[in-house]
Design a binder for these strands. Structure first.
Lengths: 184, 184
DNA sequence: GTATGCATGTAATACGTTACATGATTGT
DNA sequence: ACAATCATGTAACGTATTACATGCATAC
């Protein structure tokens, strides 16, 4: 059974799985690293943590009673780790590369540690082939529509195509790097 | 006075400004072109159109009474066109390239037609310099953090850097193309 | 003892998603 | 007459944003 969880929820769960962290720790990560650009606003993070907690994906310790405002640290439950793995293993489909590229890169960022080398290679291969298919679709659309598009519209389209081509090239190199290593 | 409008709202307003369109026309555009990936769901579009209407940014014609379900066509009011221009002319800031790249490309797509060549050149110049600054920030972060990052996390970071570098290259060519033409 | 940063939280609001519902038009 | 497609809409729900509020810890 998969438990519905938002992108932010998985980001938090993944970070908590790396090591136990408090809400404030997580906010600082979002505020100071460019790795994944989530909002560091408390209005997003604390409710999201509460939802993870209600679903038993994380547990809390370090706080005696529910009214205190002392720091409280979360860690992933085995249930939570399971959900995290299921999320990382989800098949890559067209909508993922079209609409949720950030989520795919977030998954990759956690993947090595959680699932290891083989799964990361499989992920990158699937990513590559889905990207290639989408680039070819975009290119086809471009060659059929470009002539009738206004210049600035065409440029915007080309910007998208170049972005995906860059992802294709990057994934080549990424695959090579992962393959080169015995363990990651 | 700027009237708060969502990205989807501006996308709809921009398309309606090109020529009068119905909600269904707009849904079809989102469903069949990769130009801007908004959802084509009626639950997003019709409420958004109603909001634009309430703010007097678009007017409707082609429908006698409010209860009919006959096709209704919207067109931009002068007020709406003003708001559209204000949006297109907004200064590009760091959060725009970090979080709202899609919105920037959407603005570019409308810009040529609405604001003309000079404004498009200024936009692309501003874009280029903001991207360059961000790439350099990311690169700095990379060289300080890469050594201690797990491989798959590092790859995810590099994917982001490559994406922004691709945007930088693209904007070079885009600027050249716009400059080359007398009118766009 | 009080200012500063650590740490957690809530309320109002806006919006998108999903699923459902239904009227109008056209072709056969 | 009927199906298919055109066309518009609503209700329930989840969640992000913004702004505000408040308790804890420490150092001076």
């Amino acid at each position: 059974m998969i438990i519905k969880t938002s992108h932010l929820g998985f980001a938090l769960l993944g970070l908590i799985h790396q090591k136990p962290r408090s809400g404030y720790d997580l906010r600082k990560i979002f505020a100071t690293t460019p790795l994944m650009h989530f909002s560091d606003s408390p209005g997003a993070i604390y409710p999201a943590l509460r939802r993870l907690h209600q679903k038993r994906l994380i547990t809390t310790y370090g706080r005696r009673n529910r009214l205190s405002r002392r720091k409280q640290v979360f860690r992933a439950t085995s249930n939570g780790i399971n959900q995290l793995k299921k999320w990382l293993l989800r098949r890559i489909r067209r909508p993922d590369v079209v609409w949720y590229m950030d989520e795919l890169m977030l998954r990759l960022a956690f993947m090595g540690q959680v699932l290891g080398r083989r799964a990361t290679i499989r992920f990158l291969q699937a990513f590559q082939s889905e990207i290639a298919a989408y680039v070819s679709e975009l290119t086809k659309y471009h060659s059929s529509a470009a002539a009738t598009m206004p210049l600035s519209g065409r440029l915007a389209l080309e910007s998208g195509i170049e972005e995906y081509k860059a992802k294709a090239r990057w994934s080549q190199g990424a695959l090579r790097q992962v393959r080169r290593k015995r363990r990651i």
